[in-house]
Amino acid sequence: MSTDNTHAAGTAHVAHHFKDATQQYESGKQGIWLFMMTELLMFGAIFVAFAIYHRLYPEMFAEGSKTLDWKMGFTNTLVLIFSSFTMAISIAFIQKNEQKKAIFALATTILCGAVFMVIKYFEYMHKFHLGLFPGNFIDVAKIGAEHANIGMYFGFYYAMTGLHGIHVLVGMGLITWVMIRTIRGEFHSQYWIPVEGVGIFWHIVDLIWIFLFPLLYLVG
């Protein structure tokens, strides 16, 4: 892979089955969008289930959302938005052959992801401390909930934020991967599609949080 350094200032490395760099780039881009479509459908289906149960049990969901601290969700929203910003500019830096700045932006993005997860960790720990577990493990009498099926709210809360959290971790791993490759000099103004793909993935993770925040923390 290190031989790709020779391309740094020149042209892209085009794989054998592509005719030219444009075809390679556009194929990659379309593949990324198709994959994002599957991500949206996967997350979206839980949102659909959430919408259905929210309509069926509005008071129970209202009771559940009162136990969440919107300040934590708010902080995390700001952190993720900032990380989306640094991710977006890192691609622009690579396209302008400013790799040092790009590496700095990518590192900041990973750091933001870590901050997000730490805040999430404290949020979870606080919930566990209060005995707010999903369905089977919640003791309705002990936490003094009005609705006997309050466990479903926390089922949704943990399922949605948990799956989102896994995506944050995966995203951090992917950004680390493209950062290492940037340090090695594999990306430049003619070849950046893996960074752009990881970036779009990271923005999808942000996008889902943008909806999770009002859904879980504000609306009730």
Partner: peptide, 18 residues
């Protein structure tokens, strides 16, 4: 799987799911 492991209640009628 989550229903089975953690009882999230989305599909389990015992927990109010459908």
């Amino acid at each position: 799987a989550a229903e089975r492991l953690f009882g999230v209640g989305v599909f389990d009628p015992k927990l109010g799911g459908d």
